[in-house]
Amino acid sequence: MKRELLVSLSHVNDPATTNIYPGDPPFELETVATIEKDGYYTRYVRQGEHTGTHWGAPGHFNEGEALADDLDLGDLFLPAVKIDVRDSCARDADYQVTIGDVEEWERHHGQIPAESMVIIWTGWDAKWGSPAYLNTDAGGALHHPGFALDTVRWLADTGRIGHRGGTGTDAFSPDPGIDTTYAVSRLVYQRHRISLEILANLAALPPTGAHILCGGHINRAGAGSTALIYGVLPPPEDTGTETKPPG
C-alpha cells in the first residue's frame, strides 16, 4: 500500500532559544501544576499568534480579509515547491528572490502548479536560536532575505500562488528584513493566500512533488497560528526506490 511520508517543518518552541520578532509579545512557559503536588503536569503558555514556526491568515495585514476561522482545510493543505537560494543569501543577507530565480528553478523542475505554496530556503533556519537569526544592525534594523515585490506580484498574476496559495520562508517573513512597510506581506496576504514563516528542516522537503499541511490553533478572528507544519512527501513507490523518512 502506498503511504505518504510526513516530515516536520517546525522548530520546537522553547523560551531559551525562540527568537522573537521585535515588538511581538514575549514567550513564556509557566508550570502551574506538577505531578508531585497536583497529580498531573501542565503549563500556562503566553505567546503571540506568530511566535516561532507559524502561518499567517490574510487578515494579518489586510483589513476585511479572511482570518484564521474563515479559512478551510483547502487553504491549509497546498502543493509545495522549494527554491534553494542559500548561496545568494549567504552572499547578501538582504537578498530579494527574483523572477529570474523562479524561472531558473522552473527550467529544472517544470512550471509551478497553480495555487502552490512557494517556499524559499534561505539558510536562515540554521541560525535559529541565535542573535544571527535577527541579524540586527547598530540601528536596530533587521537583515534577512525575502521575496522581491515584483516576484510575488508575478507569482500572483500568473496563478502560481493564485487565490489560495502562498509563500513560505525559513526567515521571519516573506519581506526582506529591511522593508518596514511589509509590502510583500500585504500582497501575499490577499484573497485566501497564507504565509508560512520560520520554517525548519527544509533540507527534508524536496524541490517539488510535496504538499504542506498546516496545523495549529484556530483562534476566533485569529491573525494566524503558531503551528505544526508538515511536508507531505509523495509515496516512495512513485520514485521507484524505497525511501525512509528523513530525520
Rank of each mutant, 00 (worst) to 15 (best):
M1S: 12
E4S: 08
L5Q: 15
H11R: 13
N13G: 07
A16F: 14
N19Q: 04
P26A: 04
P26G: 11
A33C: 03
E36N: 08
Y40R: 13
Y41N: 12
R46M: 02
H50E: 01
T53L: 03
H54P: 00
H54N: 04
N62I: 14
G64R: 11
A66M: 08
D69R: 05
D70M: 13
D75P: 06
D75R: 04
L78W: 10
A80S: 12
A80N: 11
A80H: 03
R86P: 01
D87N: 08
Y95V: 00
Q96H: 04
V97Y: 10
V97N: 01
V97D: 03
V102I: 15
E103Q: 15
E103M: 14
E106M: 15
H108I: 12
H108V: 09
H109Y: 14
H109G: 02
P113C: 11
P113D: 07
G123W: 06
D125F: 00
W128R: 03
G129R: 03
P131F: 12
D137A: 04
G140P: 06
H144Y: 15
F147I: 07
D150H: 12
W154N: 13
D157Y: 04
G159Q: 11
G166N: 10
F172S: 07
F172K: 00
T181M: 10
T181F: 09
V184T: 10
Y189G: 05
L199R: 02
A200E: 03
N201G: 02
L202D: 04
L202I: 14
A210H: 13
G215P: 01
G215L: 05
I218R: 07
A221C: 03
G224P: 08
A227Y: 06
V232M: 02
D238C: 11
T239C: 00
G240W: 03
P246S: 14
